[in-house]
């Protein structure tokens, strides 16, 4: 699904990612943990095509294609979805409008016709129920005035409707209350399939209690300093990051 090889990324002259290697197979869930400022969001952004970063070395191959060559919207249409750590407010553009625009661009990209208005509404309402959201959110401007948790839930709503192949979730759990975390996790679990992979950036074991990862990686100082199974997260929860960082240094 995704193969990252020796990826180096700088912001201006400042190296942020210093040789990331990551192999993600279809159907796998990878958790990425690591201290603040280690480069987790940077990795998520670079994979989804945000500007302002310079790739100084390495590659990222998605479904056999050079991911880094593609415009952000092409990546999205090809099935890469980023659930933002800080979702952006877009005043004046309604949630449902953006969902329709997004879904139709994916369909067009795949040579399909525009979605039928009734089918679309049925689909959207089903997903709104799945995430236990109020339908009113559909008609509000994208994220405008949403609470922190509502924004995160809205990201997952978009993900559920667009059905991406590679879901990158940057701290989706942060800001969610206990009930919301459960609902969102169930939503994510319902999207699991042998063809769909997940990269979940998180600071907390809680999320991983609901969504069991196949692999856990620790990102520190721009490198993956340790990888392991689901148990690694438990160990980190107990001991912190000090010991893995030390082991590398």
């Amino acid at each position: 699904m995704l193969s990252i090889k020796n990826l180096h990324v700088s912001i201006g002259d400042k190296p942020i990612l210093k040789g990331i290697n990551l192999e993600i197979k279809p159907g796998e869930i990878h958790a990425i943990m690591g201290p603040n400022g280690s480069g987790k969001s940077t990795l998520s952004h670079v994979l989804s095509g945000k500007g302002g970063y310079t790739v100084t070395g390495g590659s990222a191959t998605y479904q056999g294609k050079d991911l880094l060559e593609m415009a952000p919207e092409i990546r999205a249409r090809e099935g890469v979805f980023l659930a933002f750590q800080y979702p952006v407010e877009i005043p004046g553009v309604s949630n449902i409008y953006l969902l329709k625009a997004a879904l139709n661009s994916i369909r067009k990209h795949n040579g399909q016709s525009e979605v039928d208005a009734m089918d679309f509404l049925t689909l959207v309402k089903e997903k709104v129920r799945l995430l236990e959201m109020d339908e009113k959110f559909l008609y509000r401007a994208v994220n405008e005035g949403f609470s922190g948790g509502e924004k995160k839930r809205n990201e997952i709503l978009q993900m559920a409707i667009l059905e991406p192949k590679l879901c990158i979730m940057d701290e989706t759990d942060s800001g969610l209350d206990i009930d919301a975390l459960k609902i969102v996790s169930e939503g994510v679990n319902s999207l699991r399939s042998p063809e769909r992979s997940f990269v979940m950036v998180t600071h907390y074991q809680r999320l991983l209690d609901y969504i069991k990862p196949d692999k856990v990686h620790v990102l520190a100082h721009g490198q993956i300093v340790k990888s392991g199974g689901a148990d690694l997260a438990l160990e980190l929860e107990e001991k912190g990051y000090g010991w893995v960082e030390e082991a590398v240094a």
Binding site: K50, A71, R77, P87, V88, A102
Partner: peptide, 14 residues
């Protein structure tokens, strides 16, 4: 620019 990227990440061209 942040808003433009957000929309792009939702499949909308620039």
């Amino acid at each position: 620019e942040k808003s433009i990227f957000y929309l792009q990440s939702r499949c909308v061209d620039e």
